[in-house]
Simulated assay, not measured.
Amino acid sequence: MSQQTSEESLTPDAPRPSPTSSSVARLNDYRRAKAVDPDLEPLRRQVSTIIDAILADNAPDEAEVREKLRLHVARNPGRPEKALLGHLISMSDRQDEAG
Score class of each variant (00 low, 15 high):
47 V>M: 12
12 P>N: 01
23 S>N: 04
32 R>S: 02
93 D>S: 14
81 E>F: 02
58 N>F: 13
68 K>M: 15
86 G>R: 01
80 P>E: 13
94 R>E: 15
19 P>M: 09
73 V>E: 00
23 S>A: 14
24 V>I: 14
87 H>T: 07
27 L>V: 11
88 L>V: 12
49 T>P: 03
71 L>T: 04
80 P>D: 07
29 D>C: 09
68 K>D: 11
99 G>W: 03
61 D>F: 12
20 T>V: 02
2 S>W: 08
13 D>F: 09
89 I>S: 03
82 K>A: 13
84 L>E: 09
47 V>H: 04
8 E>F: 09
39 D>F: 00
63 A>R: 15
28 N>I: 15
42 P>E: 02
83 A>N: 03
38 P>N: 05
25 A>I: 11
75 R>F: 11
37 D>I: 05
18 S>Q: 09
21 S>P: 11
30 Y>T: 04
64 E>L: 12
82 K>V: 15
18 S>E: 10
84 L>S: 02
45 R>D: 06
32 R>T: 04
85 L>P: 03
91 M>K: 10
30 Y>R: 10
21 S>F: 04
9 S>V: 10
56 A>K: 08
7 E>Q: 11
97 E>W: 01
4 Q>P: 08
56 A>F: 15
84 L>C: 11
91 M>Q: 12
20 T>M: 01
50 I>E: 13
94 R>H: 13
42 P>D: 00
11 T>G: 04
11 T>W: 00
97 E>F: 00
57 D>W: 01
90 S>K: 14
83 A>K: 08
82 K>I: 14
56 A>D: 14
85 L>R: 05
5 T>Y: 10
95 Q>P: 01
36 V>S: 03
88 L>I: 15
65 V>C: 12
75 R>L: 15
8 E>R: 12
43 L>P: 00
91 M>V: 13
89 I>R: 10
57 D>N: 09
31 R>F: 04
23 S>T: 01
60 P>R: 10
3 Q>K: 03
64 E>V: 06
41 E>L: 13
43 L>I: 04
94 R>D: 13
34 K>T: 03
99 G>P: 00
